[in-house]
Design a protein around this nucleic acid. Structure first.
Lengths: 340, 340
DNA sequence: CTGAAAGCGCTAACAC
DNA sequence: GTGTTAGCGCTTTCAG
């Protein structure tokens, strides 16, 4: 309850301008209805300026029921603003800026964030970045039921129909795999993301399988390795696979951390990229783009699409939940070569 | 006033639990004072769970006068979340998370942001990232006068004493210059940031001059080039300088965009780095770190320091405004060689 | 131990 | 045209 040098409020302005408090609101909000005489309006403006008065967003939100704020739920707990999120937020911010919306970021798990933002009514809408689908579901259901404006990015919620924006995971995975196949590879290993919890991981795996099937290539047992999105698993399981005498001439990695880890394992064994093993990945990270061939999600486009969709949604003109899939552009260096 | 499916409020919970509204608050806030019998408290908890009730942050903020939110003012209008800001926010977020603070980002210029967040009482405190010192001053003065918790990062406000956290610009610039001098360079060009508006640009320039002076080296006319922090100016003015027959064997760039632009100009003229011209810079960007020698600000440390300081400040235990300067570590490739 | 009551600062409908 | 009034949903004394 300790407040600093009590800021001026509406009554202070009213007193100074010798008008009623509501007149202050009328003037400052430029309400279209009742016309206030210029003389009065000048007095009010001057008083407000003099006192450095702006109306309290809190009080206004309480009475209007609108916060003019959108929530951003970033699932990753550590270093949430790394490239993937930063790129998307750039695009999102650009889309929301002109509307005067603010962005509220809250700490915690995806579930608690969604709960916090929606149930505590802190925001008019929200975007959820790459929440593992399964874990967030209970809360998400209540969101969807209440028809609360929300856009999911990078991972599709299970069992809840909502707006969803992402790259076209299946198509991109297929393109990447086809690039390897075109180069002449037949024995291709796929390092997959967490298939049990993440829809993007599953869709990338499916794209890989589709490309192989279309080319009439077999996918042998163990050639799809569920590694979560974490490079650490690759560091454990890829060596085991190699020790087991697995045969492959190329690797399609579901993300960049895995590609980096795979490159490290290969290097440690004296295998060269792309001389001995070709490497291709999907990811937004560009720190090693000149070393590994990648399909890069257009992050700002994704964020922008999310922003535009959320605006529709908050404006009440959304209609049914919609899925938007954005294509990826190939980028990066030539880490793909014909098999030896 | 159009609200969706009216969320449950405290009275709804009270009615369902057959208690008074205030009892609901007492239970849910775990107020230390009055002890509620377990039977009642169970009923209330159950009712709240059933209705999916959480108290409104807006209403609570209105009555307590605390928002549990910190504002983040990002001056750059386009792509605000690029690496510099993202890194700092990561550190800041980690520091604020445990306290349960949220982060509010608002669109607009630094002035309007500061005005919006402080005067509209949306936040308990704020950090301002790299605002050009001069432009933000009028608003900043009222912040400082009201003793409002605020931490400035990356640019020191003019004529206002506030908390300020940054790398040690002068010392880092001096180190960078000294590295060139140690390599044997005597004719060194400094591509400076916007000297008239940005304190960091000035301090880096001063560090450069100090190193030159200490080594007894003259700084000839035109060897400090005010280019703003924008690479575009370098692209215009560096060629002009070269055409004018300027003599230098090394360049110290105030930031990375300038270094990149300088590298491009040199390449276009067939000058090699570091064969013909050595290049060194200060910056957080790591996308070309393996090409240009740089002194990299420890972004997360800066953000963390800002978070800790802001917490003190909001807790009322801040004392006088403080300046914290954090040292930079050298990083990146060998783009420095002895002069030919 | 529980409930009633007074605001927090504001918007918007409605009198004057 | 301007002022009065009724809440928005909650926290927090203060009586019962």
């Amino acid at each position: 309850m300790q407040r600093r040098k009590q800021a001026a409020n509406r009554s202070d302005v009213a007193r100074l301008a010798k008008v009623a408090p509501s007149t202050v609101s009328l003037v400052l909000n430029a309400t279209p209805g009742p016309r206030i005489p210029d003389e009065t309006r000048q007095r009010v403006m001057e008083a407000a300026r003099q006192l450095g008065y702006s109306s309290s967003t809190i009080a206004r939100a309480l009475v209007t029921g609108r916060t003019m704020t959108v929530g951003v739920v970033v699932h990753f707990v550590e270093r949430p603003f790394q490239q993937y999120v930063a790129g998307i937020l750039d695009g999102f911010w650009m889309a929301m800026r002109p509307q005067g919306y603010r962005m509220l970021l809250v700490p915690g798990s995806a579930e608690s964030c969604v709960a916090g933002l929606y149930r505590e009514r802190s925001v008019d809408g929200l975007i959820v970045l790459a929440a593992p689908a399964a874990s967030a579901d209970p809360e998400l259901k209540s969101l969807a039921e209440a028809d609360f404006p929300a856009v999911f990015i990078g991972a599709r919620p299970l069992a809840v129909r909502t707006d969803y924006i992402d790259i076209d995971n299946a198509a991109t995975a297929r393109q990447a795999t086809e690039e390897l196949i075109r180069a002449g590879h037949r024995d291709i290993l796929h390092l997959a993301g967490p298939l049990d919890v993440n829809s993007a991981a599953r869709e990338r795996r499916d794209g890989f399988l589709a490309a192989m099937r279309a080319a009439g290539l077999p996918v042998r047992e163990g050639m799809v390795l569920d590694c979560s999105f974490n490079g650490a698993f690759v560091g454990q399981r890829l060596p085991a696979l190699l020790d087991g005498g697995a045969r492959f001439t190329a690797i399609f990695c579901a993300n960049y951390d895995m590609a980096r880890a795979a490159a490290a394992v290969l290097a440690a064994r004296g295998l060269r990229v792309p001389g001995d093993v070709s490497l291709i990945a999907i990811d937004a990270d560009n720190t090693l783009r000149n070393e590994i061939r990648t399909f890069a999600p257009p992050l700002e486009d994704i964020g922008g699409a999310a922003g535009r969709r959320l605006r529709e949604s908050m404006g009440g003109t959304s209609g049914a939940p919609r899925t938007v899939l954005i294509p990826c552009q190939p980028a990066g260096a030539a880490s793909v070569a014909p098999p030896r």
